[in-house]
Amino acid sequence: MLILTCPYCGVDCDETELGAGGEAHLKRHGPGSTDEEFESYIFQRENPRGVHFERWRHAMGCGKWFHAARDTATLEVFGTYVAQAFEPPQEIKDKITAKRPGWTWRDVA
């Protein structure tokens, strides 16, 4: 069972109160992009065993989207942060580095 803290309400939400939104920090490639970029935007997803960044929605609560950093293998949650972030905040990255030295995720490290 996954328990994430909603950064907006500050409450600890159970997985069943949340809606999963897939991988975080995707950059949209729309009209004018190349076929490769569009394919990557639509289909190419990370599927790591370890550190992962995801989008979640506090569906049965405030209804806001937020980001979460967690370990897919151990379900350890490194932290949650607001949806308006374009990349993981330094504070979250530091926490992950402290626990998983040498981690990388896409071009984030």
């Binding site: 309400c9 409450v11 600890d12 069943t16 109160e17 049965m60 405030c62």
Partner: peptide, 24 residues
């Protein structure tokens, strides 16, 4: 509900939006 109902987590005067079985 999966909400934490201990007094420390939900004292008087604090509202919790959550689900009750299958509904919000």
């Amino acid at each position: 509900t999966p909400a934490d109902l201990r007094v420390a987590a939900l004292p008087t005067g604090r509202v919790r939006r959550t689900r009750l079985s299958q509904v919000p």
